[in-house]
Write a protein that binds this DNA or RNA. Structure first.
Length: 299
DNA sequence: AATCCGGGGGC
DNA sequence: GCCCCAGGATT
């Protein structure tokens, strides 16, 4: 495998074709980059942009967020989805303020110790905020490597091997390695896409094993399909939180349960009795909602 | 290793 | 309608 040629072509393409995303600006703080990585976990770039800007305007440092109640983070998270991430980001801000003098750590192990920071986010922050040399592997990178290196139509289940695969391709120079990491993610996001890859625009087409072998239909077994959202507990939870974000005081359990049922068909309600109450209880368990007396509010 | 966790965009 | 998305925590 011509790793030097691949790295050069990909970095060159990134210089020409990368989107101008604000968290890639050179002066972006490590905190701002950390916030972007939290928001980008399973949420697309276009939806993140306005929330990211507003978040950093309001909370320019971890200590600023840590000083506000966690419910404010849940409210500002708006509809980015998976609101537990807002809670985790708040906890991470408290941890950074209390344990790291309000400075985002650069060490991968210290980053991994923060709430809500896993293998992807830790290496992304160490790499993009501090210029360290690590393989940064996300869903885009895994797909690019699956196709270019392994000749497969799609990536399989995430595995430790993914980090080794990426490390094999990484340029020696840390700055070049950081750009290469970002470029692999960008290529997967806008050219080597899951659905309809734009191979005619791909800078790695000449090296791509999947292309070279005639696009075999050899996708490995995918992770189990996510349950349908319509009618799910997640949807019910989302409706309750939407009510609490807009309500500035507390609401009753009856109001919360009614919000959980809003829009459900009579048949769906009959098929899933008690779902609304379960949704409220699970939000309480997750501390996304807290009870004070008979009423409920954001934490 | 499997499940859970939002919500929206693309096709 | 279905698939996918800059994942991580929990069991």
């Amino acid at each position: 495998m011509d790793t030097t040629g691949i790295a050069h072509a990909l970095i060159d393409w990134f210089g020409r074709s990368a989107r101008k995303l604000p968290w890639r600006a050179p002066e972006t703080s490590a905190w701002a980059i950390l916030v972007s990585e939290f928001m980008l976990q399973q949420t697309q770039v276009e939806r993140v942009l306005p929330r990211w800007t507003a978040w950093l305007e309001r909370w320019p440092q971890p200590s600023a967020l840590a000083a506000d109640p966690p419910g404010e983070a849940v409210r500002a998270w708006d509809r980015l989805g998976y609101p537990r991430r807002a809670l985790w980001l708040h906890r991470a801000a408290v941890e950074i303020a209390e344990q790291h003098s309000d400075q985002v750590p650069s060490d991968v192990n210290q980053l991994l110790a923060l709430t809500g920071v896993g293998p992807y986010t830790a290496r992304a922050v160490a790499t993009f905020a501090f210029g360290e040399r690590h393989p940064v592997v996300d869903t885009n990178t895994r797909r690019v490597i699956a196709r270019v290196v392994h000749g497969r139509a799609a990536a399989g289940m995430p595995a430790a091997r993914d980090l080794d695969d990426m490390a094999q391709l990484l340029p020696e120079e840390p700055a070049a390695a950081a750009v290469f990491n970002a470029a692999a993610m960008e290529l997967g996001a806008i050219v080597c896409t899951a659905r309809a890859p734009r191979c005619d625009e791909c800078p790695l087409a000449a090296w791509c094993e999947w292309r070279g072998t005639g696009y075999p239909d050899n996708a490995p077994e995918k992770r189990p399909k996510q349950a349908k959202f319509e009618g799910s507990d997640r949807q019910a939870r989302g409706r309750v939180l939407a009510l609490l974000r807009s309500a500035h005081g507390a609401v009753t359990r009856a109001e919360a349960a009614a919000a959980a049922r809003a829009g459900m068909s009579p048949a769906a309600l009959a098929a899933n009795p008690g779902q609304a109450e379960r949704a409220v209880e699970s939000l309480l368990r997750d501390t996304l909602v807290i009870a004070e007396g008979e009423r409920l509010r954001l934490p």
